[in-house]
Measured scan of single mutants.
Amino acid sequence: DETGKFLVLSLYDYQEKSPREVTMKKGDILTLLNSTNKDWWKVEVNGRQGFVPAAYVKFL
């Protein structure tokens, strides 16, 4: 199980638009929880879990 094993870097600021999403700032290091959807990845940032656009992050 690779859940929570990968870190990704936020390339852009992102403001959550729904309760299922999370806000991140450019340069944030996020824990990747799920990347099965090619468009939206589930991450943990600042103690919160939610989705961010996959195009806004990259693997470290």
Results as ranks from 00 to 15, higher is better:
residue 1 D to Y: 13
residue 1 D to F: 13
residue 1 D to S: 14
residue 1 D to M: 14
residue 1 D to V: 14
residue 1 D to I: 14
residue 1 D to P: 14
residue 1 D to H: 14
residue 2 E to A: 14
residue 2 E to D: 13
residue 2 E to C: 15
residue 2 E to P: 14
residue 2 E to F: 11
residue 2 E to K: 15
residue 2 E to T: 14
residue 3 T to K: 14
residue 3 T to S: 13
residue 3 T to F: 13
residue 3 T to W: 13
residue 3 T to H: 14
residue 4 G to C: 15
residue 4 G to A: 12
residue 4 G to Q: 14
residue 5 K to W: 11
residue 5 K to A: 11
residue 5 K to E: 10
residue 5 K to N: 11
residue 5 K to Q: 12
residue 6 F to S: 11
residue 6 F to C: 15
residue 6 F to I: 15
residue 7 L to R: 09
residue 7 L to M: 10
residue 8 V to S: 02
residue 8 V to A: 08
residue 8 V to F: 07
residue 8 V to K: 01
residue 8 V to G: 09
residue 9 L to G: 03
residue 9 L to I: 15
residue 9 L to K: 09
residue 10 S to A: 15
residue 10 S to Y: 07
residue 10 S to I: 08
residue 10 S to M: 06
residue 10 S to K: 04
residue 10 S to Q: 03
residue 10 S to T: 08
residue 11 L to K: 06
residue 11 L to G: 04
residue 11 L to I: 12
residue 11 L to P: 01
residue 11 L to N: 04
residue 11 L to Y: 05
residue 11 L to A: 06
residue 11 L to Q: 06
residue 12 Y to D: 08
residue 12 Y to G: 07
residue 12 Y to T: 11
residue 12 Y to F: 13
residue 12 Y to Q: 14
residue 12 Y to M: 14
residue 12 Y to E: 11
residue 13 D to P: 05
residue 13 D to I: 03
residue 13 D to E: 05
residue 13 D to Q: 03
residue 13 D to K: 02
residue 13 D to W: 05
residue 13 D to Y: 05
residue 14 Y to A: 02
residue 14 Y to T: 02
residue 14 Y to I: 02
residue 15 Q to V: 14
residue 15 Q to K: 12
residue 15 Q to I: 15
residue 15 Q to R: 08
residue 16 E to Q: 13
residue 16 E to T: 08
residue 16 E to A: 15
residue 16 E to C: 12
residue 17 K to D: 06
residue 17 K to Y: 05
residue 17 K to M: 12
residue 18 S to L: 08
residue 18 S to M: 08
residue 18 S to K: 07
residue 18 S to Q: 08
residue 18 S to D: 12
residue 18 S to P: 03
residue 18 S to V: 04
residue 19 P to S: 12
residue 19 P to A: 11
residue 19 P to L: 09
residue 19 P to Y: 10
residue 19 P to C: 10
residue 20 R to H: 14
residue 20 R to Y: 14
residue 20 R to K: 12
residue 20 R to I: 12
residue 20 R to A: 12
residue 20 R to M: 13
residue 20 R to S: 13
residue 21 E to T: 09
residue 22 V to W: 02
residue 22 V to Q: 01
residue 22 V to H: 02
residue 22 V to K: 01
residue 22 V to A: 05
residue 22 V to P: 00
residue 23 T to N: 06
residue 23 T to M: 04
residue 23 T to Q: 04
residue 23 T to R: 05
residue 24 M to P: 00
residue 24 M to Q: 01
residue 24 M to N: 00
residue 24 M to W: 01
residue 24 M to V: 10
residue 25 K to D: 03
residue 25 K to H: 11
residue 25 K to M: 09
residue 25 K to S: 09
residue 26 K to G: 05
residue 26 K to P: 04
residue 26 K to R: 11
residue 26 K to L: 06
residue 27 G to N: 06
residue 27 G to E: 03
residue 27 G to C: 07
residue 28 D to N: 06
residue 28 D to Y: 04
residue 29 I to Y: 06
residue 29 I to K: 06
residue 29 I to E: 03
residue 29 I to L: 09
residue 29 I to A: 03
residue 29 I to D: 00
residue 29 I to N: 02
residue 30 L to Y: 08
residue 30 L to K: 00
residue 30 L to N: 01
residue 31 T to A: 09
residue 31 T to P: 09
residue 31 T to C: 12
residue 31 T to Y: 12
residue 31 T to K: 13
residue 31 T to Q: 11
residue 32 L to F: 05
residue 32 L to P: 00
residue 32 L to E: 00
residue 32 L to T: 01
residue 32 L to H: 01
residue 32 L to W: 02
residue 33 L to T: 04
residue 33 L to Q: 02
residue 33 L to R: 02
residue 33 L to C: 08
residue 34 N to M: 07
residue 34 N to F: 06
residue 34 N to T: 07
residue 34 N to E: 14
residue 34 N to H: 07
residue 35 S to C: 15
residue 35 S to R: 12
residue 35 S to A: 14
residue 35 S to D: 11
residue 35 S to W: 15
residue 35 S to I: 10
residue 35 S to V: 09
residue 36 T to P: 03
residue 36 T to A: 12
residue 36 T to Q: 12
residue 36 T to E: 14
residue 37 N to Q: 09
residue 37 N to M: 08
residue 37 N to I: 05
residue 37 N to P: 04
residue 37 N to E: 10
residue 37 N to K: 06
residue 37 N to D: 15
residue 38 K to V: 09
residue 38 K to D: 11
residue 38 K to W: 06
residue 38 K to Y: 07
residue 39 D to N: 12
residue 39 D to K: 12
residue 39 D to G: 09
residue 39 D to R: 11
residue 40 W to Y: 07
residue 40 W to L: 03
residue 40 W to M: 06
residue 41 W to Y: 10
residue 41 W to S: 02
residue 42 K to S: 07
residue 42 K to A: 08
residue 42 K to G: 04
residue 42 K to D: 03
residue 42 K to Y: 15
residue 43 V to M: 01
residue 43 V to R: 00
residue 43 V to Q: 00
residue 43 V to L: 02
residue 44 E to L: 08
residue 44 E to Y: 05
residue 44 E to P: 00
residue 44 E to F: 05
residue 44 E to D: 09
residue 44 E to Q: 09
residue 44 E to H: 04
residue 45 V to M: 10
residue 45 V to L: 15
residue 45 V to C: 08
residue 46 N to W: 05
residue 46 N to M: 08
residue 46 N to E: 10
residue 46 N to H: 11
residue 46 N to L: 07
residue 47 G to F: 04
residue 47 G to L: 03
residue 47 G to H: 05
residue 47 G to Y: 04
residue 47 G to A: 04
residue 48 R to H: 07
residue 48 R to V: 10
residue 48 R to P: 02
residue 48 R to L: 07
residue 48 R to W: 04
residue 49 Q to R: 10
residue 49 Q to C: 10
residue 49 Q to A: 12
residue 50 G to V: 03
residue 50 G to K: 01
residue 50 G to A: 02
residue 51 F to K: 02
residue 51 F to D: 03
residue 51 F to I: 06
residue 51 F to E: 03
residue 51 F to M: 08
residue 52 V to A: 02
residue 52 V to E: 01
residue 53 P to M: 03
residue 53 P to R: 04
residue 53 P to W: 05
residue 53 P to T: 03
residue 53 P to V: 05
residue 54 A to F: 02
residue 54 A to E: 02
residue 55 A to P: 07
residue 55 A to V: 10
residue 55 A to N: 13
residue 55 A to H: 13
residue 55 A to E: 11
residue 55 A to F: 09
residue 55 A to G: 12
residue 55 A to L: 10
residue 55 A to C: 14
residue 56 Y to D: 04
residue 56 Y to E: 03
residue 56 Y to G: 08
residue 56 Y to K: 08
residue 56 Y to Q: 06
residue 56 Y to C: 14
residue 56 Y to S: 11
residue 57 V to F: 04
residue 57 V to Y: 03
residue 57 V to S: 00
residue 57 V to A: 01
residue 57 V to W: 02
residue 58 K to S: 12
residue 58 K to C: 15
residue 58 K to D: 11
residue 59 F to L: 15
residue 59 F to Y: 10
residue 59 F to V: 15
residue 59 F to D: 07
residue 59 F to E: 09
residue 59 F to K: 11
residue 60 L to Y: 11
residue 60 L to Q: 07
residue 60 L to G: 04
residue 60 L to A: 07
residue 60 L to N: 04
residue 60 L to V: 11
